[in-house]
Design a protein around this nucleic acid. Structure first.
Lengths: 162, 162
DNA sequence: GAATAAAGATTATAAGATATAACTATTTTT
DNA sequence: AAAAATAGTTATATCTTATAATCTTTATTC
């Protein structure tokens, strides 16, 4: 038993030491708390490039898949088509990407990155990678591999239920 | 080289195989994708109890810390006070919790769960635990420990930067 | 000890992200 | 040729989280 952290003027109102042990037992809760931290760092990093999480992901997908369809981007990222349109509009306005109509099916737009788009994306990817390394601190390589594997497994296991 | 998945009527528009390997290299991206799956499952589970993620977390915190202050809940969950008020209002309306004024400091409300609140929470916690076990599938205990440890480490490392 | 500042909670509102519904243009199916 | 389906768009709604302003009460300061 300890009286260590009791200040002289401590009002014994509320709870002395707040416990979140039940919540901390949930993988979901811990994952959310961790993601919140990652997201805060990420948004700050991306703000230097005038990108948000979604537009960044979209841009990376375009670089990795030159000439990809909008529907393919939306599928890969699991985002709804209307939200993708908004993201693409923003990237197109900044001349980071171009929409090109497919001749053989005029409903389809193929998306390509411009040179400026590729350059910006490369810088942004490097910045994000750098920040992730910082945030991972001294996490050893094997733990990191396990982390990613288990996360992936959960994603697949859970996703297959819906 | 393989032609396996080429349908007869395949239009060679867009990209044949979409790659998300750059994004999949990011811990942040994988964490988000996994959390999306967990969240979908969780929301479905909690809907049976008329709870959302936030109100569930709040209720659990109250059970684990009887007589906790609102500000202590908000701090512990890293949510803003106004959002907590809304969540508490909902729980109070359903007689799952009660607000009690602190005599020695009339600005403060101490929150307690009612019997109904404790019962509902217990059921909800069990349901969520069951679903998490399902979603984790055959993940071995050691991997799970590593997962939680690394997530926690990232949370702390990243959080200390802000 | 009165004036001022700070703290806890609340209300109202805004911003952000994501989802749904309805529509246009084009292609495919019947 | 008519009907159905697909790709993308527009408009809008919902849900979550954040900010600003207010009220009451307590603490601080001159």
């Amino acid at each position: 038993m300890s009286f260590a952290s009791q200040t002289t003027n401590e009002q014994t109102s509320g709870v002395l030491d707040v416990s979140d042990k039940t919540l901390r037992g949930f993988v979901g809760y811990q994952t959310k708390r961790t993601f919140n931290v990652i997201q805060a760092d990420l948004n700050e990093t991306l703000s230097a490039f005038d990108l948000r999480m979604v537009s960044f992901s979209v841009l990376v997908m375009i670089i990795d898949n030159n000439g990809i369809r909008q529907s393919q981007i939306a599928d890969a990222l699991s985002i709804e088509a209307p939200n993708l349109v908004v993201a693409l509009d923003g990237l197109e306005r900044r001349d980071l990407i171009i929409r090109e109509r497919l001749a053989t099916d005029r409903r389809v737009w193929l998306i390509q990155a411009t040179l400026a788009g590729r350059r910006l994306c490369e810088k942004a990817v490097r910045a994000v990678q750098k920040h992730e390394r910082q945030i991972l601190g001294d996490t050893d390589a094997q733990s990191l591999v396990t982390l990613m594997e288990v996360l992936k497994k959960i994603e697949i296991a859970g996703g297959s239920k819906l």
